[in-house]
């Protein structure tokens, strides 16, 4: 009997331990923070309370995130700073949507960056009554959807909560974004050069933004400027065909991403055989990659400020 009891105890212990580690891994992988939110609810706070003090104002700038520390401050950081300068009455906060990047920065560099739920919860707990959520995403893709999904439970908790639009939302945005970027790209003057933008690409219907951008460029007279994506369409082969048809002899590559991170450094400008730089060279083009995220363009930062302004005034 004693033995049986011991066996049971050990068994229960092992089971409990296994259980512990299991739940630990869930909470770690659950970077979306649903757990944190529900924990706060359980802690006895009045979750039905609505923050009405609109003199306490905040702008939450939501980005995908990047593990490139240097680039992050030049791009996401620069957009945040520009918004801070433009709206001095507002507290400007940062959140990332990529759980993978949040975890990586925490594990590798000890940096704590909030996800959207955590940031919203903090704003709520601190009594902010007016909140503008401004994404730095390119378009209304999955990241944007997920951001909205994460903010949704908080919508009724602030007397004023509004969303800014991503970079490319309506027709005017395309035109403005093209003007902002092209004014800082000297190579368009050279008729032997093709300028190629590398976007990310997605299987979300919003991917059509890239084709639209490509068309808009031509409409605005930029015949030798082309747009492709790493992960979707138009792909490298589509862009190559356009470049071949253009008669250009030289290709200048720019990322069409807020941050010049992993994709810009490796997929676009890397020395690997499958980078766009190498693939264009293999086709006989003199190829020059420029590592400059969209967040580094003054005009693009101003556009985000305008989108924020529209949200907080709207």
């Amino acid at each position: 009997m004693k033995k049986l009891l011991m066996f049971l105890t050990v068994g229960l212990f092992v089971f409990a331990m296994a259980g512990c580690t299991n739940s630990q891994s869930v909470s770690e992988s659950n970077s979306k923070g649903e757990q944190e939110v529900s924990e706060n609810k359980d802690s006895g706070e009045d979750s039905d309370k609505v923050n009405t003090d609109e003199s306490k104002k905040a702008i939450l700038v939501v980005s995908f995130g990047t593990s490139y520390n240097d680039s992050r401050e030049k791009t996401i950081g620069a957009v945040e700073n520009k918004i801070t300068e433009a709206f001095p009455d507002y507290e400007v906060r940062r959140a990332f949507t990529s759980g993978m990047i949040i975890n990586k920065l925490k594990d590798r560099d000890g940096l704590e960056i909030d996800n959207v739920e955590q940031a919203m919860q903090k704003l709520y707990d601190e009594g902010f009554g007016k909140v503008v959520v401004q994404p730095t995403h390119i378009m209304n893709g999955y990241e944007y959807d997920e951001m909205k999904e994460a903010v949704k439970p908080f919508e009724a908790k602030f007397s004023s909560l509004s969303y800014g639009t991503p970079l490319l939302n309506d027709d005017k945005d395309y035109e403005e974004a093209i003007k902002a970027v092209m004014s800082e790209i000297p190579e368009t003057e050279d008729k032997d050069s093709a300028v190629v933008f590398m976007g990310h690409g997605t299987d979300h219907p919003a991917n059509s933004a890239y084709a639209k951008l490509n068309d808009k460029l031509k409409e605005m007279g930029y015949d030798n400027v082309f747009v492709g994506t790493v992960e979707s369409t138009p792909d490298f082969d589509d862009v190559l065909e356009e470049v071949n048809n253009s008669g250009a002899k030289k290709v200048v590559l720019y990322p069409f991403m807020i941050v010049a991170g992993d994709h810009a450094n490796n997929d676009m400008a890397g020395d690997e055989e499958d980078s766009w730089k190498t693939m264009f060279k293999k086709e006989g083009y003199e190829t020059i990659p420029v590592i400059k995220g969209l967040g580094e363009y003054e005009g693009i930062r101003n556009l985000f400020v305008e989108h924020t302004r529209a949200a907080l005034e709207g």
């Binding site: 520390n69 680039s71 030049k74 590798r108 450094n265």
Partner: peptide
């Protein structure tokens, strides 16, 4: 690497 995040030629030269 996964435990260390030194910069690269571009990021170091841009500091």
């Amino acid at each position: 690497g996964s435990m260390n995040s030194g910069g690269d030629l571009i990021s170091i030269s841009q500091r």
